[in-house]
Design a protein around this nucleic acid. Sequence first.
DNA 1: CATGAATGAGGGTTCATTCAT
DNA 2: AATGAATGAACCCTCATTCAT
Lengths: 213, 213, 213, 213
Amino acid sequence: MTPADQPVFRQSPAKRARRADAERNRAAIIEAAGAVFAEQGGTVDVREIARRSGVGMGTLYRHFPAKEDLLATVLEQEVASWLTAAHQAAAATEEPWQALTVFFEQALDILARNRALVESYAAAGPPACAPRRDAVMDELRIRCVNAGLLRGGVTTADLVLLLTSLSQVVQAADDGHPGQWHRLLRISLDGLSSRHTEPLPEPTLHADAPGND
Amino acid sequence: MTPADQPVFRQSPAKRARRADAERNRAAIIEAAGAVFAEQGGTVDVREIARRSGVGMGTLYRHFPAKEDLLATVLEQEVASWLTAAHQAAAATEEPWQALTVFFEQALDILARNRALVESYAAAGPPACAPRRDAVMDELRIRCVNAGLLRGGVTTADLVLLLTSLSQVVQAADDGHPGQWHRLLRISLDGLSSRHTEPLPEPTLHADAPGND
Amino acid sequence: MTPADQPVFRQSPAKRARRADAERNRAAIIEAAGAVFAEQGGTVDVREIARRSGVGMGTLYRHFPAKEDLLATVLEQEVASWLTAAHQAAAATEEPWQALTVFFEQALDILARNRALVESYAAAGPPACAPRRDAVMDELRIRCVNAGLLRGGVTTADLVLLLTSLSQVVQAADDGHPGQWHRLLRISLDGLSSRHTEPLPEPTLHADAPGND
Amino acid sequence: MTPADQPVFRQSPAKRARRADAERNRAAIIEAAGAVFAEQGGTVDVREIARRSGVGMGTLYRHFPAKEDLLATVLEQEVASWLTAAHQAAAATEEPWQALTVFFEQALDILARNRALVESYAAAGPPACAPRRDAVMDELRIRCVNAGLLRGGVTTADLVLLLTSLSQVVQAADDGHPGQWHRLLRISLDGLSSRHTEPLPEPTLHADAPGND
DNA sequence: CATGAATGAGGGTTCATTCAT
DNA sequence: AATGAATGAACCCTCATTCAT
């Protein structure tokens, strides 16, 4: 009760109190928006998000000046937290190929439950996250290359494209065929193994004819 | 004024003229809708389609009671014509594996130019076409199996899922990296080759797609 | 009942029927908007106009893609009809000075009952109408000059500014003092008479000090 | 911590500090609001004022329960300070007619730089100031009347209306024709001169403004 | 008392669908 | 049967005002 025990932070309590509440609201909005976007995609009515967050429209727009800002924030946060987990999982896995496999499994597991995230991949994903994602995937690739496990000529861009490709399939396939994408993932990853020595088509010369043997 | 010039079918000429006109309108609508949906996806304003078809909104809605009906019709027609071409190409290609490759190349080439078609794949495709598509793909699969080229345990559902997966990537990647999907296709198909003998993950229950015994 | 009596206009009736209805709606919108804008100014809710026109929002926006377009159309139409009447009145009045007086009386009478119109004068008026208005006023000015009634150096721009100036006062003053602006108009017009021979301040050199005698 | 330095009033120091703070806040709000209203008119967002004053919304609304109260206060204060200056200038000017001219020049100069002030004139001005303003203008009028310079029958209400009228024109005309209003002022004042002996139109009943016997 | 976050009733605008002609 | 104008429920966003801290 005496002011003696807060000798250092004089104005902090008030400021922090407000901040805390606002931050709680902001978090609630992000969480609700995350759920709603995941369920219904990026086209949902903003009111639905406000309702689920338990805040008014004004609060929502105070934190995110436009719907798109909210969507971007949510996506970036989700991607960031995914990448953190992915990085840890990769570090914890000795075997390079298994690390790569786990990475894809984990990513697709998340994507399978998030419509907005998948939608964002169709539009090349939230740009801010791409570098970090590419870094994580690059590391996984290098490890496989160094272990002689990865097919020659496979770039990180190829891996990203594979992820994009698979991301779009986890939801469609989950209607009635849950988990079928695991098979497709296995097939694709096998196609990446060093068992295949044939060169891949050049990325720059988009040849319509398939042959390059 | 007298109906003297149509002695046999009294109301037929009018009806027939109507029919012909209606059919021409229907075709115009489908063609315009096809172009518009391909360019802009399934969310375009219906007015745009009416404008490009040269018909009024009423006519459009007489032929297709809802936007979605029009979309479904257009997609089914496009898929049908694709499958016809695909079937012919497959019949004309001796080598089973190349037939499979050509099939995918051709399909993705079409999908790369058609936003609505790609969107439809995210929603499991126009249902009415699935059986025929599955039949065509099943035949390709069987040929590869019989030639000992296809990995054991690969189902037609797997191939469909692969197509779905790749379909989503042909447009996204075409920004800046046109044709990069050719590499991914090659990788995936290689993953399907009989070089790989490891069993694929179980489809986890109820598979509706054609079998693979 | 026989088609003999419409040998010439075959497709016209249908087309014209629709047009007529749409035109009636358009007119209803403009009229309602005119009334509402006049009463409440340019900030009224578009819904209020739709309600008073008896049309839906869509109809309103079909005819006027944006609220501002509607406002501009209404104002231009009102100004145009005013100028037509003003031109006729001017032509019908022999005496140049009385013609000028009548012009101002008429104009201010209209402005006194129209908030939006007055508002538009604060923003230099609907641009499209200015030339015609200036032409009408220029003619009035010339007549007075030729008759030796107008003070030397008075430009049309001065007259326009006078109109603008008085326009803003007809409503404010009408609360409790209806018609008081007639006195001010008389005073201002008297200041324009050739009885005054002192030169007016130069328009380009905006001198803050008043003296130029 | 001890209230030793204010031995007489025990709770005063806090209260007085509060009061001083509150007064400083109030002044800051009024100043910021004055600037903002002058620049952007009365429709500005209240947040803008809070921001420029450096106070929170709550403080602003504590001092002024509604936006309109703030606007009224600001306007009244500005008008009051203007009237003080105007009164001094009038007293310092020997010549009655020049005093009147200077009054208008000064007033319009102020109005030219203050959107909200001009807007308020369209709505008959901040009511609380009218009496004092009328008094100042009445005195100017009387001086001119006594010197035989003013046209017969000109009331203070006429002068007020002239000011109102001109106020609306100083901004509109300043786009491209800065200072053009000086010409209009000259014309109007000339119309007020005793050179004109024709009677003005009757005020049509109930005049609230100071008389002109 | 100050703060500034929260509120929510509108405001302008769009577009799938219906309906009078 | 064709036309395209009409409908109106939503949608995204703003801002004067209130209220918890």
